[in-house]
Write a protein that binds this DNA or RNA. Structure first.
Length: 258
DNA sequence: ATGGCTGAGCTACTCAGA
């Protein structure tokens, strides 16, 4: 089974690229972030035509997350944390694979820039609430996948110029510590587990030819709870959608799970 | 050192992204 996470930067502006991607890669479950639309305007019918059901947590203009899936997703939850700003940033649901229940947690973490503002404080608070809620969840759920746009660069290798990002909300020590704490609860960063020294990115800024120069960041992640690791067959950052016309600034990450 | 792109809402321009 193929599960994919993709920050599409507006599902409506990206609809052609997303449909093309689905035709080509045939994901079983697609986790979308930054859909930038209310539920009512989500292109549910276009995905339905391809055999996908939509599970949407949208809002007007900004943010928004969704699952589109060929298989049934049960127990959809939108209140994994109480968001201080009431932004739509987490959708959870359960899938079943070989009689095993797997909880999927699809997240879009606040960006947090500029630092020394309420935006950064919001990110910190948001992440601390998230960790608290994960800590509760692991007591009752064995198989958990957390995926999405974390807006966190885990290590120096995950950014083209790490010195330039030292005081950035994506790379500050305080933020990276929270990511490590999350891993310490019993999760692995699947990409880094499988690719120990590989330098690849999931995001390239639209500006200043970042894509052409490969000035990127690895900020989209798949975390697996430790006892699910034996089921993870592979992970791939698929750069093709980033090279198309009218691309998202993020590209999909794909896992194969058996 | 920033915001050179991009999108939403809207129709002139601001806000947000990373």
């Amino acid at each position: 089974m193929k599960i994919v996470s993709w920050n599409v930067n507006s599902v409506r502006a990206r609809i052609i690229n997303v449909l093309d991607y689905i035709h080509l890669e045939k994901p079983d479950v697609l986790l979308l972030q930054e859909i930038k639309t209310e539920n009512i305007n989500f292109p549910t019918d276009e995905f339905k035509k391809l055999g996908y059901e939509s599970y949407i947590f949208g809002q007007k203009s900004y943010n928004g997350v969704a699952f589109i899936s060929k298989i049934k997703i049960d127990n959809i939850k939108l209140d994994f944390i109480k968001d201080d700003l009431k932004q739509s940033r987490i959708i959870c649901g359960d899938i079943t694979l070989n009689k095993k229940k797997i909880k999927l947690i699809n997240i879009y973490v606040p960006n947090g820039n500029p630092v020394n503002t309420d935006k950064y404080e919001y990110k910190i608070k948001w992440l601390k609430k998230f960790l608290k809620s994960i800590k509760k969840t692991i007591l009752i759920e064995k198989n958990i996948i957390i995926a999405g746009d974390f807006n966190i660069i885990p290590e120096e290798i995950d950014v083209h110029d790490h010195e330039a990002y030292l005081n950035d909300a994506l790379f500050k020590i305080e933020i990276r510590k929270i990511f490590r704490e999350l891993l310490n609860y019993g999760f692995k960063d699947i990409y880094r587990l499988i690719n120990r020294a590989k330098q690849e990115y999931t995001f390239w800024d639209y500006m200043a030819g970042s894509w052409q120069k490969n000035y990127g960041l690895r900020i989209d992640h798949f975390l697996s709870s430790d006892n699910l690791l034996e089921n993870i067959k592979s992970i791939n950052i698929n750069k093709k959608p980033r090279s198309k016309t009218k691309p998202s600034d993020h590209t999909p990450i794909e896992i194969e799970i058996i």
